[in-house]
Design a protein around this nucleic acid. Structure first.
Length: 552
DNA sequence: CGGTTTTGACCAGCGC
DNA sequence: GCGCTGGTCAAAACCG
Protein backbone atom coordinates (compact mmCIF):
# COMPACT_ATOMS: atom_id res chain seq x y z
CA UNK A 1 0.00 0.00 0.00
CA UNK A 2 2.66 2.37 1.06
CA UNK A 3 4.71 1.24 -1.85
CA UNK A 4 1.96 2.09 -4.23
CA UNK A 5 1.53 5.41 -2.63
CA UNK A 6 5.18 6.05 -2.89
CA UNK A 7 5.20 5.01 -6.45
CA UNK A 8 2.36 7.24 -7.23
CA UNK A 9 4.01 10.00 -5.43
CA UNK A 10 7.10 9.42 -7.40
CA UNK A 11 5.11 9.29 -10.50
CA UNK A 12 3.65 12.58 -9.67
CA UNK A 13 6.92 14.14 -8.88
CA UNK A 14 8.46 12.84 -11.99
CA UNK A 15 5.71 14.15 -14.01
CA UNK A 16 6.01 17.44 -12.40
CA UNK A 17 9.65 17.49 -13.15
CA UNK A 18 9.07 16.62 -16.67
CA UNK A 19 6.50 19.20 -17.01
CA UNK A 20 8.59 21.82 -15.51
CA UNK A 21 11.52 20.86 -17.55
CA UNK A 22 9.73 20.42 -20.74
CA UNK A 23 6.31 21.20 -21.69
CA UNK A 24 4.89 22.18 -18.50
CA UNK A 25 2.56 19.35 -18.37
CA UNK A 26 3.07 15.88 -17.23
CA UNK A 27 1.13 12.84 -17.59
CA UNK A 28 -0.14 12.95 -14.13
CA UNK A 29 -1.11 16.40 -14.76
CA UNK A 30 -2.64 15.12 -17.80
CA UNK A 31 -4.41 12.78 -15.68
CA UNK A 32 -5.44 15.58 -13.54
CA UNK A 33 -6.28 17.72 -16.43
CA UNK A 34 -7.95 14.90 -18.05
CA UNK A 35 -10.03 14.38 -15.06
CA UNK A 36 -10.79 17.97 -15.02
CA UNK A 37 -11.67 17.88 -18.57
CA UNK A 38 -13.46 14.70 -18.17
CA UNK A 39 -15.45 16.00 -15.38
CA UNK A 40 -15.77 19.23 -17.10
CA UNK A 41 -18.13 17.63 -19.43
CA UNK A 42 -20.45 17.11 -16.60
CA UNK A 43 -18.60 19.16 -14.16
CA UNK A 44 -18.80 22.17 -16.31
CA UNK A 45 -22.44 21.66 -16.50
CA UNK A 46 -22.43 21.26 -12.82
CA UNK A 47 -20.40 24.35 -12.43
CA UNK A 48 -22.72 26.22 -14.63
CA UNK A 49 -25.61 24.90 -12.72
CA UNK A 50 -23.84 25.64 -9.58
CA UNK A 51 -23.12 29.07 -10.82
CA UNK A 52 -26.66 29.48 -11.77
CA UNK A 53 -27.73 28.19 -8.49
CA UNK A 54 -25.30 30.36 -6.81
CA UNK A 55 -26.64 33.16 -8.82
CA UNK A 56 -30.07 32.27 -7.73
CA UNK A 57 -29.06 32.16 -4.18
CA UNK A 58 -27.44 35.47 -4.61
CA UNK A 59 -30.66 36.69 -6.01
CA UNK A 60 -32.27 35.60 -2.87
CA UNK A 61 -29.66 37.16 -0.73
CA UNK A 62 -29.26 40.30 -2.68
CA UNK A 63 -32.44 40.28 -4.52
CA UNK A 64 -32.97 43.96 -4.71
CA UNK A 65 -29.59 44.57 -6.21
CA UNK A 66 -29.92 41.93 -8.84
CA UNK A 67 -33.35 43.03 -9.68
CA UNK A 68 -32.15 46.53 -10.03
CA UNK A 69 -29.37 45.49 -12.28
CA UNK A 70 -31.73 43.53 -14.42
CA UNK A 71 -33.98 46.44 -14.73
CA UNK A 72 -31.22 48.64 -15.83
CA UNK A 73 -30.10 46.12 -18.37
CA UNK A 74 -33.44 45.58 -19.89
CA UNK A 75 -34.62 49.09 -19.87
CA UNK A 76 -31.38 50.66 -20.67
CA UNK A 77 -31.73 53.22 -18.00
CA UNK A 78 -31.41 53.14 -14.37
CA UNK A 79 -34.46 52.81 -12.27
CA UNK A 80 -33.27 53.20 -8.78
CA UNK A 81 -36.62 53.21 -7.24
CA UNK A 82 -38.27 50.88 -9.60
CA UNK A 83 -35.52 48.38 -9.22
CA UNK A 84 -36.47 47.79 -5.68
CA UNK A 85 -40.12 47.69 -6.31
CA UNK A 86 -40.46 44.01 -5.74
CA UNK A 87 -38.71 43.87 -2.50
CA UNK A 88 -38.93 47.30 -1.19
CA UNK A 89 -42.48 47.66 -2.02
CA UNK A 90 -43.20 45.17 0.62
CA UNK A 91 -41.06 46.98 3.04
CA UNK A 92 -42.57 50.23 2.02
CA UNK A 93 -45.97 48.86 2.38
CA UNK A 94 -45.04 47.52 5.70
CA UNK A 95 -43.57 50.77 6.64
CA UNK A 96 -46.56 52.51 5.29
CA UNK A 97 -48.84 50.20 7.07
CA UNK A 98 -46.81 50.59 10.16
CA UNK A 99 -46.87 54.29 9.74
CA UNK A 100 -50.54 54.17 9.22
CA UNK A 101 -50.92 52.00 12.21
CA UNK A 102 -48.63 54.28 14.08
CA UNK A 103 -50.86 57.10 13.24
CA UNK A 104 -53.70 55.41 14.94
CA UNK A 105 -51.81 53.88 17.79
CA UNK A 106 -48.68 55.37 19.10
CA UNK A 107 -47.23 52.28 20.72
CA UNK A 108 -46.81 50.29 17.61
CA UNK A 109 -43.09 49.52 18.08
CA UNK A 110 -43.77 46.09 19.46
CA UNK A 111 -46.17 45.32 16.70
CA UNK A 112 -43.78 46.56 14.08
CA UNK A 113 -41.02 44.41 15.41
CA UNK A 114 -43.31 41.45 15.44
CA UNK A 115 -44.35 42.17 11.90
CA UNK A 116 -40.76 42.47 10.80
CA UNK A 117 -39.95 39.16 12.40
CA UNK A 118 -42.95 37.68 10.75
CA UNK A 119 -41.76 38.99 7.42
CA UNK A 120 -38.34 37.56 8.02
CA UNK A 121 -39.78 34.23 8.89
CA UNK A 122 -41.88 34.35 5.81
CA UNK A 123 -38.89 35.26 3.71
CA UNK A 124 -36.84 32.48 5.21
CA UNK A 125 -39.60 30.02 4.64
CA UNK A 126 -39.93 31.15 1.10
CA UNK A 127 -36.23 30.75 0.63
CA UNK A 128 -36.35 27.34 2.17
CA UNK A 129 -39.07 26.39 -0.22
CA UNK A 130 -37.00 27.67 -3.06
CA UNK A 131 -33.96 25.78 -1.94
CA UNK A 132 -36.00 22.67 -1.49
CA UNK A 133 -37.33 23.08 -4.96
CA UNK A 134 -33.82 23.58 -6.18
CA UNK A 135 -32.70 20.42 -4.45
CA UNK A 136 -35.57 18.55 -5.96
CA UNK A 137 -34.61 19.82 -9.35
CA UNK A 138 -31.01 18.83 -8.87
CA UNK A 139 -32.01 15.46 -7.65
CA UNK A 140 -34.05 15.06 -10.76
CA UNK A 141 -31.12 16.02 -12.88
CA UNK A 142 -28.92 13.56 -11.09
CA UNK A 143 -31.45 10.82 -11.57
CA UNK A 144 -31.73 11.71 -15.18
CA UNK A 145 -28.00 11.57 -15.59
CA UNK A 146 -27.86 8.27 -13.82
CA UNK A 147 -30.63 6.96 -15.98
CA UNK A 148 -28.91 8.16 -19.11
CA UNK A 149 -25.72 6.52 -18.04
CA UNK A 150 -27.50 3.26 -17.36
CA UNK A 151 -29.25 3.40 -20.67
CA UNK A 152 -26.06 4.08 -22.52
CA UNK A 153 -24.31 1.33 -20.74
CA UNK A 154 -27.09 -1.08 -21.49
CA UNK A 155 -26.97 -0.12 -25.11
CA UNK A 156 -23.28 -0.66 -25.15
CA UNK A 157 -23.76 -4.10 -23.71
CA UNK A 158 -26.43 -4.90 -26.22
CA UNK A 159 -24.33 -3.78 -29.10
CA UNK A 160 -21.36 -5.75 -27.99
CA UNK A 161 -23.54 -8.70 -27.23
CA UNK A 162 -24.73 -8.81 -30.79
CA UNK A 163 -21.27 -9.62 -31.97
CA UNK A 164 -20.48 -13.15 -32.94
CA UNK A 165 -19.21 -15.17 -30.07
CA UNK A 166 -15.77 -15.58 -31.51
CA UNK A 167 -15.32 -11.91 -31.25
CA UNK A 168 -15.92 -11.92 -27.62
CA UNK A 169 -12.54 -12.23 -26.10
CA UNK A 170 -11.14 -9.05 -27.38
CA UNK A 171 -14.42 -7.38 -27.27
CA UNK A 172 -15.08 -8.53 -23.84
CA UNK A 173 -11.79 -7.32 -22.75
CA UNK A 174 -12.40 -4.02 -24.21
CA UNK A 175 -15.88 -3.85 -22.93
CA UNK A 176 -14.69 -4.93 -19.62
CA UNK A 177 -12.21 -2.19 -19.56
CA UNK A 178 -14.79 0.26 -20.60
CA UNK A 179 -17.14 -0.98 -18.03
CA UNK A 180 -14.54 -0.81 -15.38
CA UNK A 181 -13.61 2.59 -16.38
CA UNK A 182 -17.17 3.66 -16.25
CA UNK A 183 -17.78 2.00 -13.00
CA UNK A 184 -14.74 3.48 -11.51
CA UNK A 185 -15.48 6.84 -12.82
CA UNK A 186 -19.00 6.79 -11.72
CA UNK A 187 -18.17 5.27 -8.47
CA UNK A 188 -20.57 2.53 -9.16
CA UNK A 189 -19.30 -0.91 -8.55
CA UNK A 190 -22.07 -3.19 -9.28
CA UNK A 191 -21.24 -6.75 -8.63
CA UNK A 192 -24.02 -7.82 -10.88
CA UNK A 193 -22.74 -5.73 -13.68
CA UNK A 194 -19.31 -7.11 -13.26
CA UNK A 195 -20.72 -10.56 -13.23
CA UNK A 196 -22.57 -9.81 -16.35
CA UNK A 197 -19.44 -8.70 -18.04
CA UNK A 198 -17.38 -11.53 -16.81
CA UNK A 199 -20.01 -14.02 -17.57
CA UNK A 200 -20.02 -13.03 -21.15
CA UNK A 201 -16.48 -13.95 -21.56
CA UNK A 202 -15.73 -16.91 -23.65
CA UNK A 203 -14.72 -19.92 -21.69
CA UNK A 204 -11.18 -19.26 -22.51
CA UNK A 205 -11.31 -15.69 -21.71
CA UNK A 206 -13.64 -16.06 -18.88
CA UNK A 207 -11.21 -17.36 -16.40
CA UNK A 208 -8.70 -14.88 -17.29
CA UNK A 209 -11.06 -12.05 -17.27
CA UNK A 210 -12.38 -13.10 -13.99
CA UNK A 211 -9.02 -13.42 -12.48
CA UNK A 212 -7.93 -10.18 -13.86
CA UNK A 213 -10.97 -8.51 -12.54
CA UNK A 214 -10.37 -9.89 -9.18
CA UNK A 215 -6.81 -8.86 -9.30
CA UNK A 216 -7.81 -5.48 -10.42
CA UNK A 217 -10.23 -5.22 -7.64
CA UNK A 218 -7.63 -6.21 -5.27
CA UNK A 219 -5.51 -3.47 -6.54
CA UNK A 220 -8.36 -1.18 -6.16
CA UNK A 221 -8.43 -0.33 -9.75
CA UNK A 222 -8.90 -1.92 -13.03
CA UNK A 223 -5.73 -2.28 -14.85
CA UNK A 224 -6.36 -2.59 -18.43
CA UNK A 225 -3.37 -3.98 -19.85
CA UNK A 226 -2.13 -5.27 -22.84
CA UNK A 227 -2.86 -8.25 -22.48
CA UNK A 228 -4.16 -10.84 -21.76
CA UNK A 229 -2.35 -11.41 -24.54
CA UNK A 230 0.03 -12.09 -22.80
CA UNK A 231 3.42 -12.17 -22.05
CA UNK A 232 3.53 -11.98 -18.47
CA UNK A 233 6.95 -13.27 -18.35
CA UNK A 234 9.01 -11.00 -16.50
CA UNK A 235 12.12 -11.98 -18.13
CA UNK A 236 13.09 -12.49 -21.60
CA UNK A 237 14.68 -15.79 -21.01
CA UNK A 238 11.56 -17.14 -19.61
CA UNK A 239 9.73 -15.77 -22.53
CA UNK A 240 12.07 -17.40 -24.85
CA UNK A 241 11.62 -20.66 -23.16
CA UNK A 242 7.94 -20.26 -23.48
CA UNK A 243 8.05 -19.85 -27.09
CA UNK A 244 7.46 -23.47 -27.37
CA UNK A 245 3.91 -22.69 -26.72
CA UNK A 246 3.51 -23.44 -23.11
CA UNK A 247 1.34 -20.90 -21.47
CA UNK A 248 3.10 -18.82 -18.97
CA UNK A 249 2.53 -20.16 -15.57
CA UNK A 250 1.74 -17.67 -12.98
CA UNK A 251 2.82 -14.33 -12.16
CA UNK A 252 2.46 -12.81 -8.83
CA UNK A 253 0.23 -15.61 -7.93
CA UNK A 254 -2.02 -14.65 -10.70
CA UNK A 255 -2.78 -17.22 -13.28
CA UNK A 256 -1.42 -16.32 -16.60
CA UNK A 257 -3.94 -15.17 -19.07
CA UNK A 258 -5.44 -17.78 -21.19
CA UNK A 259 -3.63 -17.67 -24.38
CA UNK A 260 -3.41 -20.00 -27.20
CA UNK A 261 -0.32 -22.07 -27.15
CA UNK A 262 2.56 -20.79 -29.11
CA UNK A 263 1.19 -17.36 -29.42
CA UNK A 264 2.45 -14.26 -27.76
CA UNK A 265 0.81 -11.14 -28.84
CA UNK A 266 2.38 -7.81 -29.22
CA UNK A 267 0.69 -4.65 -30.05
CA UNK A 268 2.53 -2.19 -32.11
CA UNK A 269 1.37 1.36 -32.31
CA UNK A 270 2.49 3.61 -35.05
CA UNK A 271 2.14 7.26 -34.33
CA UNK A 272 3.40 10.16 -36.27
CA UNK A 273 5.35 12.28 -33.91
CA UNK A 274 8.19 14.64 -34.17
CA UNK A 275 8.28 14.85 -30.48
CA UNK A 276 10.68 12.73 -28.65
CA UNK A 277 8.18 11.15 -26.51
CA UNK A 278 4.58 10.50 -26.26
CA UNK A 279 3.32 9.69 -22.99
CA UNK A 280 1.05 6.81 -22.59
CA UNK A 281 0.35 7.33 -18.95
CA UNK A 282 2.81 4.85 -17.58
CA UNK A 283 6.24 5.28 -16.24
CA UNK A 284 9.02 3.54 -18.08
CA UNK A 285 12.60 2.81 -17.47
CA UNK A 286 14.94 2.23 -20.30
CA UNK A 287 16.95 -0.89 -19.88
CA UNK A 288 18.57 -1.29 -23.17
CA UNK A 289 19.16 -0.03 -26.61
CA UNK A 290 20.14 -1.83 -29.72
CA UNK A 291 20.76 -1.06 -33.28
CA UNK A 292 18.26 -3.04 -35.20
CA UNK A 293 19.06 -4.46 -38.53
CA UNK A 294 17.76 -2.41 -41.39
CA UNK A 295 17.04 0.65 -39.35
CA UNK A 296 19.49 3.46 -38.75
CA UNK A 297 17.64 4.39 -35.63
CA UNK A 298 18.31 2.40 -32.54
CA UNK A 299 15.60 0.51 -30.83
CA UNK A 300 15.09 1.29 -27.19
CA UNK A 301 13.76 -1.13 -24.66
CA UNK A 302 11.64 0.04 -21.79
CA UNK A 303 10.19 -1.62 -18.80
CA UNK A 304 7.19 -0.40 -16.88
CA UNK A 305 8.24 0.90 -13.50
CA UNK A 306 4.91 1.81 -12.11
CA UNK A 307 4.91 -1.38 -10.16
CA UNK A 308 7.80 -3.36 -8.87
CA UNK A 309 7.23 -6.46 -10.90
CA UNK A 310 5.20 -5.14 -13.76
CA UNK A 311 6.02 -7.36 -16.72
CA UNK A 312 5.05 -4.88 -19.35
CA UNK A 313 7.74 -3.85 -21.72
CA UNK A 314 7.82 -1.79 -24.75
CA UNK A 315 10.14 -1.15 -27.59
CA UNK A 316 10.38 2.19 -29.21
CA UNK A 317 11.86 2.79 -32.57
CA UNK A 318 11.47 5.23 -35.35
CA UNK A 319 10.32 3.94 -38.63
CA UNK A 320 13.20 3.60 -41.02
CA UNK A 321 11.17 4.75 -43.98
CA UNK A 322 9.60 7.66 -42.23
CA UNK A 323 11.40 8.92 -39.22
CA UNK A 324 8.50 11.04 -38.24
CA UNK A 325 6.72 7.89 -37.26
CA UNK A 326 7.31 6.39 -33.91
CA UNK A 327 6.67 2.74 -33.51
CA UNK A 328 6.01 1.49 -30.07
CA UNK A 329 5.51 -2.15 -29.41
CA UNK A 330 3.93 -3.26 -26.19
CA UNK A 331 4.17 -6.58 -24.60
CA UNK A 332 2.79 -7.96 -21.40
CA UNK A 333 0.18 -7.14 -18.82
CA UNK A 334 0.28 -4.44 -16.28
CA UNK A 335 -0.12 -5.84 -12.84
CA UNK A 336 -1.04 -2.58 -11.27
CA UNK A 337 -3.66 0.11 -11.54
CA UNK A 338 -3.14 2.53 -14.33
CA UNK A 339 -3.53 6.24 -14.16
CA UNK A 340 -6.54 7.60 -15.98
CA UNK A 341 -4.39 8.88 -18.74
CA UNK A 342 -3.20 5.40 -19.45
CA UNK A 343 -6.48 3.62 -19.63
CA UNK A 344 -7.62 4.52 -23.09
CA UNK A 345 -4.58 3.31 -24.84
CA UNK A 346 -4.44 0.35 -22.54
CA UNK A 347 -7.97 -0.51 -23.49
CA UNK A 348 -7.16 -0.22 -27.11
CA UNK A 349 -4.08 -2.31 -26.99
CA UNK A 350 -5.64 -4.83 -24.73
CA UNK A 351 -8.42 -5.32 -27.17
CA UNK A 352 -6.01 -5.61 -30.02
CA UNK A 353 -3.82 -8.08 -28.24
CA UNK A 354 -6.71 -10.13 -27.04
CA UNK A 355 -8.17 -10.20 -30.46
CA UNK A 356 -4.96 -11.37 -31.88
CA UNK A 357 -4.55 -14.08 -29.34
CA UNK A 358 -8.09 -15.20 -29.42
CA UNK A 359 -7.94 -16.08 -33.04
CA UNK A 360 -8.05 -19.60 -34.32
CA UNK A 361 -4.59 -19.59 -35.65
CA UNK A 362 -2.32 -21.93 -33.94
CA UNK A 363 0.81 -21.19 -35.73
CA UNK A 364 2.53 -18.14 -36.81
CA UNK A 365 1.35 -18.47 -40.31
CA UNK A 366 -2.00 -19.38 -39.02
CA UNK A 367 -2.02 -16.26 -37.05
CA UNK A 368 -1.83 -14.37 -40.22
CA UNK A 369 -4.97 -16.06 -41.33
CA UNK A 370 -6.74 -15.09 -38.22
CA UNK A 371 -6.10 -11.53 -38.79
CA UNK A 372 -9.27 -11.16 -40.67
CA UNK A 373 -11.73 -11.51 -37.96
CA UNK A 374 -9.72 -9.89 -35.29
CA UNK A 375 -9.60 -6.84 -37.38
CA UNK A 376 -13.30 -6.87 -37.58
CA UNK A 377 -13.48 -7.31 -33.90
CA UNK A 378 -11.13 -4.52 -33.29
CA UNK A 379 -13.03 -2.37 -35.59
CA UNK A 380 -16.04 -3.10 -33.58
CA UNK A 381 -14.33 -2.04 -30.46
CA UNK A 382 -12.63 0.90 -32.00
CA UNK A 383 -14.28 1.44 -35.27
CA UNK A 384 -12.48 4.61 -35.85
CA UNK A 385 -9.05 3.25 -35.30
CA UNK A 386 -7.29 1.63 -38.07
CA UNK A 387 -5.80 -1.61 -37.27
CA UNK A 388 -3.52 -3.81 -39.07
CA UNK A 389 -2.74 -7.15 -37.75
CA UNK A 390 0.65 -7.97 -38.92
CA UNK A 391 2.75 -10.94 -38.41
CA UNK A 392 6.42 -10.52 -38.47
CA UNK A 393 8.37 -13.02 -40.37
CA UNK A 394 11.18 -12.64 -37.97
CA UNK A 395 9.30 -12.27 -34.78
CA UNK A 396 8.03 -15.23 -32.90
CA UNK A 397 5.06 -13.31 -31.74
CA UNK A 398 2.02 -12.33 -33.63
CA UNK A 399 1.95 -8.62 -33.73
CA UNK A 400 -0.96 -6.40 -34.36
CA UNK A 401 -0.23 -2.93 -35.53
CA UNK A 402 -2.42 -0.01 -34.76
CA UNK A 403 -1.66 2.71 -37.14
CA UNK A 404 -2.39 6.10 -35.72
CA UNK A 405 -0.44 8.00 -38.24
CA UNK A 406 -3.42 9.27 -40.11
CA UNK A 407 -4.73 12.64 -39.14
CA UNK A 408 -8.03 12.67 -37.35
CA UNK A 409 -9.48 14.85 -39.96
CA UNK A 410 -9.15 12.15 -42.50
CA UNK A 411 -11.00 9.91 -40.32
CA UNK A 412 -14.54 10.80 -40.48
CA UNK A 413 -15.50 8.80 -43.44
CA UNK A 414 -12.34 6.88 -43.50
CA UNK A 415 -13.25 5.10 -40.36
CA UNK A 416 -15.96 3.38 -42.23
CA UNK A 417 -13.73 1.86 -44.72
CA UNK A 418 -12.80 -1.70 -44.43
CA UNK A 419 -9.57 -2.39 -42.76
CA UNK A 420 -6.73 -3.66 -44.72
CA UNK A 421 -4.59 -6.34 -43.36
CA UNK A 422 -1.06 -6.19 -44.26
CA UNK A 423 1.80 -8.40 -43.97
CA UNK A 424 4.80 -6.61 -42.83
CA UNK A 425 7.81 -6.63 -44.93
CA UNK A 426 9.86 -9.65 -44.33
CA UNK A 427 12.35 -9.17 -41.64
CA UNK A 428 10.43 -6.47 -39.96
CA UNK A 429 7.63 -6.60 -37.56
CA UNK A 430 6.77 -3.14 -38.30
CA UNK A 431 5.54 -2.36 -41.68
CA UNK A 432 6.85 0.51 -43.59
CA UNK A 433 5.01 3.65 -43.05
CA UNK A 434 3.86 3.95 -46.54
CA UNK A 435 2.69 0.44 -46.79
CA UNK A 436 0.81 0.71 -43.61
CA UNK A 437 -0.83 3.93 -44.15
CA UNK A 438 -4.31 3.31 -43.27
CA UNK A 439 -7.51 4.73 -44.35
CA UNK A 440 -8.66 5.40 -40.89
CA UNK A 441 -8.12 8.39 -38.91
CA UNK A 442 -6.95 8.38 -35.42
CA UNK A 443 -9.73 8.60 -33.00
CA UNK A 444 -9.52 11.60 -30.85
CA UNK A 445 -9.46 9.41 -27.88
CA UNK A 446 -6.30 7.88 -29.13
CA UNK A 447 -4.97 10.93 -30.76
CA UNK A 448 -4.43 12.36 -27.40
CA UNK A 449 -1.60 9.99 -26.98
CA UNK A 450 0.16 11.35 -29.89
CA UNK A 451 2.69 13.71 -28.77
CA UNK A 452 2.77 16.04 -31.47
CA UNK A 453 1.17 15.39 -34.59
CA UNK A 454 1.91 16.88 -37.82
CA UNK A 455 0.88 20.47 -37.84
CA UNK A 456 -1.97 19.62 -40.05
CA UNK A 457 -3.45 17.14 -37.71
CA UNK A 458 -3.11 18.64 -34.35
CA UNK A 459 -1.97 21.90 -33.13
CA UNK A 460 1.37 21.42 -31.64
CA UNK A 461 2.01 21.86 -28.02
CA UNK A 462 -0.50 23.71 -26.04
CA UNK A 463 -2.77 24.09 -28.92
CA UNK A 464 -3.44 20.43 -28.89
CA UNK A 465 -4.46 20.65 -25.34
CA UNK A 466 -7.15 23.01 -26.20
CA UNK A 467 -9.24 20.32 -27.75
CA UNK A 468 -12.30 19.99 -25.73
CA UNK A 469 -13.78 16.92 -24.37
CA UNK A 470 -16.71 17.54 -26.55
CA UNK A 471 -14.47 17.43 -29.53
CA UNK A 472 -13.40 14.03 -28.50
CA UNK A 473 -16.91 12.87 -28.13
CA UNK A 474 -18.10 14.37 -31.33
CA UNK A 475 -15.14 13.12 -33.23
CA UNK A 476 -15.72 9.63 -32.02
CA UNK A 477 -19.36 9.84 -32.84
CA UNK A 478 -18.76 11.32 -36.20
CA UNK A 479 -16.31 8.65 -37.06
CA UNK A 480 -18.58 5.89 -36.11
CA UNK A 481 -21.91 5.09 -37.55
CA UNK A 482 -22.67 3.22 -34.45
CA UNK A 483 -23.50 6.06 -32.21
CA UNK A 484 -23.76 4.08 -29.07
CA UNK A 485 -20.47 2.36 -29.44
CA UNK A 486 -18.73 5.51 -30.44
CA UNK A 487 -20.25 7.46 -27.64
CA UNK A 488 -19.37 4.81 -25.17
CA UNK A 489 -15.81 4.79 -26.38
CA UNK A 490 -15.60 8.53 -26.25
CA UNK A 491 -17.07 8.70 -22.81
CA UNK A 492 -14.80 5.97 -21.73
CA UNK A 493 -11.81 7.87 -22.87
CA UNK A 494 -13.02 10.99 -21.26
CA UNK A 495 -13.87 9.36 -18.02
CA UNK A 496 -10.64 7.52 -18.08
CA UNK A 497 -9.01 10.82 -17.89
CA UNK A 498 -7.87 10.82 -21.40
CA UNK A 499 -8.94 14.23 -22.04
CA UNK A 500 -8.18 14.90 -25.55
CA UNK A 501 -7.13 18.25 -24.83
CA UNK A 502 -3.85 17.26 -23.79
CA UNK A 503 -1.68 15.99 -26.33
CA UNK A 504 0.09 13.60 -24.33
CA UNK A 505 3.50 13.78 -25.33
CA UNK A 506 5.90 12.54 -23.03
CA UNK A 507 8.64 14.65 -22.39
CA UNK A 508 11.93 13.32 -22.59
CA UNK A 509 14.09 13.81 -19.74
CA UNK A 510 17.29 15.47 -20.08
CA UNK A 511 19.22 15.15 -23.18
CA UNK A 512 17.90 11.79 -23.81
CA UNK A 513 14.63 13.10 -24.52
CA UNK A 514 15.02 14.21 -27.72
CA UNK A 515 14.93 12.09 -30.27
CA UNK A 516 15.79 13.23 -33.25
CA UNK A 517 15.12 10.51 -35.11
CA UNK A 518 15.19 8.38 -32.47
CA UNK A 519 12.79 6.59 -30.77
CA UNK A 520 11.00 8.76 -28.82
CA UNK A 521 8.68 7.53 -26.97
CA UNK A 522 5.72 6.98 -27.98
CA UNK A 523 3.79 6.30 -25.80
CA UNK A 524 1.06 6.12 -27.66
CA UNK A 525 1.28 2.76 -27.55
CA UNK A 526 1.68 2.68 -24.21
CA UNK A 527 -1.51 2.82 -23.96
CA UNK A 528 -1.45 -0.22 -25.16
CA UNK A 529 -0.61 -1.46 -22.24
CA UNK A 530 0.49 1.38 -20.73
CA UNK A 531 -0.39 4.70 -20.94
CA UNK A 532 2.09 6.71 -19.43
CA UNK A 533 2.11 9.94 -18.14
CA UNK A 534 1.61 12.18 -20.71
CA UNK A 535 3.44 15.12 -20.87
CA UNK A 536 2.37 17.69 -23.01
CA UNK A 537 3.02 20.90 -23.41
CA UNK A 538 5.80 22.75 -24.33
CA UNK A 539 7.22 22.44 -27.63
CA UNK A 540 9.09 19.33 -28.03
CA UNK A 541 12.75 19.36 -27.70
CA UNK A 542 14.76 17.59 -30.17
CA UNK A 543 17.93 16.23 -29.16
CA UNK A 544 20.27 15.68 -31.86
CA UNK A 545 22.27 13.27 -30.05
CA UNK A 546 20.49 10.18 -30.52
CA UNK A 547 17.66 8.64 -32.07
CA UNK A 548 16.56 7.04 -29.10
CA UNK A 549 14.65 7.89 -26.57
CA UNK A 550 13.13 8.73 -23.86
CA UNK A 551 11.10 7.78 -21.27
CA UNK A 552 7.85 8.73 -20.66
C1' DC B 1 21.26 9.84 -2.56
C1' DG B 2 18.15 7.37 -5.29
C1' DG B 3 16.42 6.66 -9.68
C1' DT B 4 17.30 6.71 -14.63
C1' DT B 5 20.11 6.42 -18.73
C1' DT B 6 23.97 4.72 -21.21
C1' DT B 7 26.45 1.18 -23.12
C1' DG B 8 29.22 -2.86 -23.60
C1' DA B 9 28.78 -7.61 -22.47
C1' DC B 10 26.21 -11.66 -22.29
C1' DC B 11 22.76 -15.11 -23.61
C1' DA B 12 19.64 -17.64 -26.60
C1' DG B 13 17.48 -18.67 -30.98
C1' DC B 14 18.05 -19.29 -35.74
C1' DG B 15 20.04 -20.07 -40.26
C1' DC B 16 23.80 -21.66 -42.89
C1' DG C 1 29.99 -24.78 -34.94
C1' DC C 2 29.85 -20.11 -36.28
C1' DG C 3 27.93 -15.80 -37.12
C1' DC C 4 23.98 -12.86 -36.93
C1' DT C 5 20.33 -10.85 -34.48
C1' DG C 6 17.17 -9.78 -30.80
C1' DG C 7 16.79 -9.11 -26.13
C1' DT C 8 18.50 -8.47 -21.43
C1' DC C 9 21.80 -7.54 -17.78
C1' DA C 10 24.48 -4.65 -15.01
C1' DA C 11 28.07 -1.37 -13.90
C1' DA C 12 29.13 3.29 -14.55
C1' DA C 13 27.61 7.77 -15.54
C1' DC C 14 24.22 11.07 -15.16
C1' DC C 15 20.57 13.88 -13.19
C1' DG C 16 17.42 16.19 -10.01
Amino acid sequence: MEEKLEQRHRYNNDNVHEEEAEKGEDSMEHGGLSLHHGSSMFGRRRDEDGGGRRGEIREVDFFSRDSSARRQDSDGRSLPGGGRDDVNIGLNLLTTATAAAGATTSDCDGATTANNQKMEVTAVEAELRRVSEENRRMRGMLEELTRSYSTLYQQLLQVTQQQPHHHLPGDLMNRSSLAHTHLQSSGVHSASTRRLLDGRASPQQHDHAGVEDEASDGAGDASPSLSNAGNNDVDGKRRMSHQDGAAPPMENGEPAPAELPGRKARVSVRARSEAPMISDGCQWRKYGQKMAKGNPCPRAYYRCTMAVACPVRKQVQRCAEDKSILITTYEGNHNHPLPPAATTMANTTSAAAAMLLSGPATSRDGAAALLGHPAALFQHSFPYASTMATLSASAPFPTITLDLTQPPSAGGSGGLLPHGLHRPPAGGVLPAAGALAMPFSVPSSLAMFLPQRAPATLPAGLGARQHSVMETVTAAIAADPNFTTALAAAISSVMAGGAPPQAQTTTPRGASHGVAGGEGSNGGAGAVSSAPPATTGSPPRFATQSCTTSTT
